[in-house]
Computed example of a mutant assay.
Amino acid sequence: MPVTIKDISKEAGVSIAAVSKVINGDYSNVSSDTKNKILRIAKELNYRPNRLARGLVSNRTNIIGLIVPDIANPYFAELAKGIENNANKFGYKLILCNTDEDVEKANAYIDVLFEYNVDGVIISGSESSTSSRIQQLHNSNVPVVAIDGDLGAEAYNVYAGNLEGSFIATEHIIQSGHKLIAFIGGDGVPGRGNLRLDGYLKAMRQYEISVNYDLIKLGNYQMETGYLYTKLLIESGQPFTSIVCGNDMIAFGALNAIKDKGLRVPKDISLIGYDDIYLTTMMEPKLSTIKQPLTEISSYAVEVLVKLMQKEEAGDKVKCFVPHLVCRDSVQKLDI
């Protein structure tokens, strides 16, 4: 059986109230000898505080929830690590919820976060403000910060500039002499459209390059999408010299398809990714990509959430970080 404050009270020969005060860091009206005795016995008995029981009394658990759509994607793994590290600096522990972009799974996790009486929630990815469970969070006054999602006016929203980043990626391809440029991406975020596709289209139009919609393919943000659609594009006979990918995982799939077809990157087809996950420097050739400012995003999201949980002024409700280009070896410069 777990050790309780009643056990410590009995062993120390003091009241339960005195033990409760000391365990919770309140040393007022408790002698130094009594405090040290309680803390010593608690350590000897290997006492572990019951966070949930504490939360019922103080209405605080020092636990936050993090909801991500795909923890197998290194981008979200790196984001989760950054959020956990920053949360720890403020004394908060993390419950990680991986939804696999499944609405029912997301709703079930939000129910779990309610059960654990979390102090706040960070939601990354494609959860929509129309979700009934998201509305429950708002209605229950649980502070929520969204990263690259659309959780409505009630939530604080942290964005990476997806349109700007995709524009930069496409512009780099264009300035390298390419005009026959394919795009393979995901379906986008509900309520906000497909900003990475929009960035590609904006760059093509700004540079007055005709858009061939047969070269635009949309699926999900996993390797299989990159592999399948690159294979189909090659087999279609449609001429193209480069692919702008919606993320690095799509680019990895595209690279495998290109190699399986006996072609080479970048000699035959140039590739550019998005996110700059750690694997981009391990592939051959090393992937040119758009770097997401994950350190800044995770730090800012946690700082805002902590301020909201402590009922402090958190500043602007919308914050946008601009990504930047990382040039490596997967884009070939063509003679213009």
Score class of each variant (00 low, 15 high):
Phe321Gln: 01
Lys231Arg: 14
Leu287Ser: 06
Ala42Thr: 06
Ala42Phe: 12
Leu294Val: 05
Lys217Asp: 00
Ile67Cys: 04
Ile184Leu: 09
Phe167Glu: 08
Tyr92Asp: 11
His178Asp: 02
Ala72His: 07
Ile234Phe: 08
Tyr92Leu: 13
Gly226His: 03
Ile216Lys: 07
Gln175Pro: 05
Ile181Trp: 05
Ala108Ser: 15
Val112Pro: 00
Asn29Ala: 01
Ile269Arg: 00
Ser28Met: 02
Glu164Pro: 00
Lys286Met: 12
Phe321Cys: 03
His178Pro: 08
Ala257Thr: 01
Arg328Leu: 08
Ala87Cys: 09
Ile181His: 01
Ile269Ser: 04
Asp260Gln: 10
Tyr156Val: 13
Asn46Ile: 02
Ile168Val: 14
Gln222Pro: 00
Val22Glu: 10
Tyr92Thr: 09
Phe183Val: 08
Val142Thr: 05
Gly165Ala: 05
Thr281Asn: 14
Asn256Glu: 12
Tyr274Leu: 01
Val304Phe: 07
Leu79Gln: 10
Gln292Lys: 06
Val244Gln: 05
Ser140Trp: 06
Asn139Glu: 12
Val14Lys: 05
Ile71Thr: 02
Tyr300His: 10
Val121Thr: 07
Asp111Asn: 12
Gln238Leu: 15
Glu224Ile: 04
Arg60Val: 11
Leu334Tyr: 09
Leu218Asn: 02
Gly262Met: 02
Cys97Glu: 01
Asn247Asp: 15
Val265Tyr: 02
